[in-house]
Amino acid sequence: MLGFIIRRTLWTIPVVLLATLITFVLVKQLPYEQDIFNNPKYSPSQVKALRELYGLNDSFLVQYVHFLRDLVPTHVGFSTKLRDLVTFDLGNSTKPGALRIWDDIVAIRLPVSMKLGTMAFIFAAFVGTGLGVLSALRTNGPIDYAITLFSTLAFALPTFVTATLWVKYSPYYGWDTWSLRIGPILLLGLSIMPYFTRLVRASMLEALQQEYVTTARSKGIPWRTTVVRHALRNSLIPTIVNAGPLFGFVLTGSFLIERIMNVPGIAGEFVSAFGQPLDNKLILVTTVLLSVIIILMNLVVDVIVGWLDPRVSHD
C-alpha cells in the first residue's frame, strides 16, 4: 500500500509537467503577441520594452522555464494586461500599471472559487449519493421516478437558467455573508448532483444483485446492515473514481454562476482576460492551477480507491 502511494505520488510529477507544457503550447497560440506588435498605440521603443518585459525574445525553452517560475506564488510575475497604459514608464523597470498575477489576482480570487466549488461538491456528493441509494432501493416506484425526473431536470437546465431565475426571485446570492452564499452553493451543487445520483443508482443496483448480498442476507444479516455494509460500500467505488473529474467540472462549472450571482471568484478575471488586450499570463497561470488542483484531486481519489479496493493497489 505504501509503495502504491509513493509510486502514484511520484507519477503526478510528469503528469503536472505534461499539463503545464500542453497549456503553455496552447496559450502561446493566442493572438496576444500580435497585439503587442501591431498595436498602433505603442511606439517602436515601447514594443521593444514590452517584448523584453514579457521575455518574448527568449527561446521557447527559456520562456517555458520562466513560465514555470511564474507558477511559484512567491515569484512576482506580472499580468500581461496593462491596466493603466498611461503610467507605463519606459525608464522605470518596476512596471507600473501591471497587476501582479499572484498578489493582485490569484491569491484574492482563487480561494473564493475553491471554497464555492468545494462546498458545492460536498453538498452534491452527499445529497446526490443519498438520492441515488434511495432511488436504487425503490426501483421503478414513484420515489425512483421522482428522483430520476428531478436529476434529469437538474442536468438539462443550464446553470445560466437556474442562476438567472434564482437572482430574479431570491435575495440570497452573493458572497459576503453565509446566507448570501446559499444561492451559488445550492445551484452549483445541483448542477453536478445528477452525476452522483446516476452513478450511485446504477452501481447500487448492480451491487444489490451480487452474490455477496444474497450470502449476507442468507446468513441472517438484517437488510439495513447488508445495504450499508456490503452494497453501499462497493457501489461507492465507481462514484469515488469519478470524483476527480467531477471536482474539476464543478470548479470550472462555476464560471457562469459566479458571473450571474456576483461571486468574486476567478471566473470574472479569467473570462475578462480574453478581452482586448489579452491577458495571456493570467490565462496560463489560472489554467495550470486548475489542472494542478484536478491532478492532486485525482491522486487523492486513487489513494482512497486503492485503500477501499486492494485489487487496485496490489501490484
Binding site: A19, G248, F255, I294
Partner: peptide
C-alpha cells in the same frame, strides 16, 4: 495524464 486538463479553460 490528460484527465487532469480542465474542460472549460481549454
Amino acid at each position: 495524464a490528460l484527465y487532469g486538463l480542465p474542460y472549460l479553460p481549454f
